[in-house]
Amino acid sequence: MAEVKNRAGGMGEIAEVEGPYERAPFGTELADLGALDERIVGLSADMSKYSDIIPFRDRFPERYFNAGMAEQNAVMMAAGMAKVGKIAFCATYAAFLTRRALDFIAVSCAHSNANVKIVAGSPGLVNPYGATHQSLEDLVVMRSIPDLTVIDPCDAVELRHAVRAAAATPGTFYIRNLRGKVPVVFDETDFTFEIGRARLLRPGRDVAVIGTGFMTARALAAAETAAGQGVSAAVLHVPTVKPLDAEAIAAVCADVNRVIVVENGVRSGGLGTAVVETLSDHGIAVPVQRIGLGDRFHPCGSQAYNEALFGLDEDAITRAVITGDWPHT
């Protein structure tokens, strides 16, 4: 593996992106939706720039509210606005939302079926500022809360569609945000998004690779490389972690020799755990390899550096698909 230099990008933004990308797909989509529906409001906790909500803020300043560095207040304001008929999008860092404001998300939003959409930036191992800013366990925590929809989009196209679906669907949502130069993986012309539905992106007979978020793009690249070496890998994209498309997961795993789950977060309790639970429920006995982060705090460093160090990069995933070897802890 080539040496990866530890050069951190700015506040959770991927510094270098190969191929097509969009800037601020979340904020741009929210602004477009705001023009169609006056009920939509935007909130942040002193993170408008670093949550990419600025396009909405600039277009509708009277409908944008900055709670300052007080995530609990931002979530409670969103819940209160939802009580009077607003569709409230609350955007800031995942680490601060899911730790400091967890009770407010669970009780004031999900338990109350509030029309609040939590848009969580720098999820997983994206942020360069170490354990205080890396929300490695957010999917674990959020999928445990009843009446909460959890979405982890793959690219800019899916993020925009997820925001659109959240705005149109009553209830509380948790959406992992992608910011800065957000890669475009899917073709808008034939793309569809349905809450609770996984997408089989590539058929295969030897190994099934199940991914969520931007890790799915790496799974696709790994499957393409593996095909050149005689390994047939199916790729299933699971953008909705909750509610989970258990039938699609069972179907893709039923006729392969092994399964690999790739996710940007801790291995225990996240998508990998959900897949193992699903296979157990369906009586499917197949080895499952979970590629994610171990039970530890992770250091400061650029996204590329940390992912190479802990085995979340494309090289490590490709090696696992072809050989089954993933020597990381």
Rank of each mutant, 00 (worst) to 15 (best):
A8W: 02
T132R: 10
T149H: 06
L136T: 14
H133M: 05
Y129S: 13
R218N: 11
S144T: 13
R160H: 00
I291H: 05
L200H: 03
R218Q: 14
V209L: 15
F186V: 01
A106S: 11
V241F: 12
V163I: 15
R319P: 01
A95M: 14
N306Y: 04
A156L: 01
V262W: 07
L148D: 02
L33N: 06
P243G: 00
G180C: 06
L271Y: 06
E194M: 07
S108L: 01
M11C: 14
N257T: 12
S135T: 06
M76G: 03
Y21M: 03
A95S: 14
T278S: 12
I210D: 05
V163L: 05
P55L: 11
A162E: 00
V261K: 09
F173R: 11
H161T: 01
K181H: 12
G294D: 05
I291A: 08
I291K: 09
V184E: 03
G230P: 02
P153D: 01
D206K: 08
G283W: 03
S108Q: 11
A227H: 10
E38R: 12
F193N: 09
E314H: 10
L220V: 09
A156T: 00
A106M: 11
A24G: 02
P20R: 11
F65D: 02
T329S: 14
P146E: 07
V185E: 10
F214K: 11
R176W: 08
T98M: 13
G12M: 09
F186W: 04
S268V: 13
E224K: 12
F214W: 12
L244C: 11
D245A: 10
R99N: 06
V286H: 08
A8K: 13
A114K: 10
L309Y: 01
R99W: 04
I14Q: 13
P243W: 00
I145K: 03
P287F: 10
D152L: 00
A219W: 03
G301C: 03
P287G: 11
D190E: 13
L33P: 01
F104S: 11
V288G: 04
I54S: 14
M1R: 13
H111I: 00
D52C: 12
A217S: 15
A2M: 14
I175N: 04
T273V: 04
D46F: 09
C90H: 07
G34F: 06
A167K: 07
A233Y: 02
C300Y: 08
N115Y: 08
M81L: 15
D32H: 12
V321Y: 09
I87T: 15
I249P: 01
L220D: 03
F173Y: 10
M47A: 14
Y93V: 07
A45V: 09
R179S: 05
E158Y: 04
L220R: 07
G34P: 06
T189I: 00
N177W: 05
A165H: 02
V209M: 12
A94S: 15
A222C: 10
I118F: 00
A251K: 15
A320T: 07
E22D: 11
A79G: 02
R296G: 05
L271F: 04
A308I: 03
D281F: 01
G80C: 04
L102C: 02
S108G: 02
L178N: 11
L244Q: 08
A208M: 12
V4R: 09
H328M: 13
L33A: 04
A219V: 08
L293M: 12
I54Q: 15
R267G: 07
R164V: 01
